[in-house]
Design a binder for these strands. Structure first.
Lengths: 243, 243
DNA sequence: TGTATACCCGTTGTATACAAACTTTCTTTA
DNA sequence: TAAAGAAAGTTTGTATACAACGGGTATACA
């Protein structure tokens, strides 16, 4: 179907996730409609969709803006993931199909491959502050792989409700993760943690899987919080709002 | 603000949650607009809102209908609650305010009060199949109390994201409740389980709280599954109550 | 100069008209 | 009679016009 609203939705989403529409930016219907060459109606639909995803939130004055993710939100979202993904891992131990297990392993393989490429071509990023386009692409790639892993994990649980809820959490974190991954290029630990999760699931050991997920998310949360606090002290951003 | 869409949203929501708009019923914009005396625009807005809440889902043919909650969904939703509410309880141990603790205790007191009233006026329901209006009201009351408890628990965590996610789960479970009528569950056990949760939280013992929540939800899930299985085998739709 | 009021402009909410896609049914033809 | 196609009806998508609400500014008056 050639619906305009889905096109504008995708375009808007891309603008938000790429940072062209910055967090906190007010979304006004008519200018957006002009920008995309459509009327206000599909813009409204698109914004509603984004609101549903958590990428757009209502302002205090009833207006709409790109969601602002605070440090507190990041922590809260990680706690939600902690609860949901432990259940997902336990469910995966019971219900993951062979194909899904294979997908998870593929994901890990891609991760290692991507990591080796980055290590070869770029090396570690401890030297400078600036990030080249190639680095940016590779880091973007890692982010995608990580997201794929967690999405596959959710799907492997065989619980569609869980998938839906986690999807929402991931959407809200997308803004956050976009900025934090650049600050935290050392992801070898992450892949190791993913491997432990997969191993536990393949052994159908739900307790071990839950523990592995818990450890992974607690570690990730710590990494992100550290990165965010570093960001905050570096810039002169007032209060809790980060972006 | 006297926005029409919020009025129609509330009206539609009420119709869905009261069962006047049955699960699976297709939602067509123009008839609904005629029914509520508004144009299609606010109807669309309201439906989008309900879709966001999970009370409306898209049909296979792209149409919209009142969400259909299956038995499998019920089990999956309980698993989601299991994950989220354990986190909520642990959060509550850290962040619950004295006022919130008091509210939780009030909730329990109301539960005991309601229970004694039901016991006095009605007695247990082991005898017959039919349920009087008074019984129905009292069971409705208990359901509200139970929902209040879990809502307060979520809020006590101090995690708004968690509150949002649990709200969605509760909404969908409310739909399931409508597909059947009530059956008197063993409520004394439920209140006792609630009490254990509160005690753990008041002692700020997050591990105990998580265990208490886990035990409670596993028991609740078992109760519901048992009721559902009996419902399937038995000819008469006695129904279930979700606690 | 400070405050209050009135008006203008920007933004969202609502109604309505029209278009496009899909369904269904009836008709026509092989 | 069956199948294919066309026409009518249904439903959602889109554009647009207008209304209502609110904020900000300018002006008038104290």
């Amino acid at each position: 179907m050639g619906k305009l609203f889905s096109k504008t939705y995708l375009a808007l989403r891309q603008e938000i996730l790429s940072g062209k529409l910055a967090s906190g930016k007010c979304l006004v219907e008519q200018p957006l409609a002009d920008k995309f060459g459509v009327s206000r109606t599909p813009i409204r639909e698109a914004i509603r969709q984004l609101q549903q995803e958590g990428l757009v939130e209502s302002d205090r004055r009833g207006g709409l803006r790109v969601t602002v993710v605070t440090i507190a939100d990041a922590i809260h979202l990680y706690d939600c993931r902690l609860g949901l993904e432990q259940i997902a891992a336990m469910g995966a131990c019971e219900n993951a199909t062979p194909a899904q297990l294979e997908d998870l392993q593929d994901c890990l393989a891609q991760a290692n491959l991507a990591d080796s490429i980055v290590t070869e071509t770029i090396g570690n990023n401890s030297s400078g502050l600036s990030i080249s386009p190639e680095q940016s692409d590779e880091l973007e790639n890692r982010l995608r792989i990580d997201q794929s892993f967690h999405r596959l994990l959710a799907e492997s649980s065989g619980n569609p409700q869980l998938v839906d809820l986690l999807e929402q959490v991931f959407s809200k974190m997308a803004l956050l993760r976009l900025t934090t991954t650049y600050q935290q290029p050392d992801v070898l630990e992450i892949w190791a943690e993913h491997e432990r999760i997969i191993e536990a699931i393949m052994q159908r050991d739900s307790q071990a899987a839950a523990v592995a997920v818990r450890d992974h998310l607690i570690a990730s949360k710590a990494r992100v919080v550290q990165a965010l606090q570093g960001l905050r002290t570096g810039a002169s951003l007032q209060g809790i709002a980060l972006f």
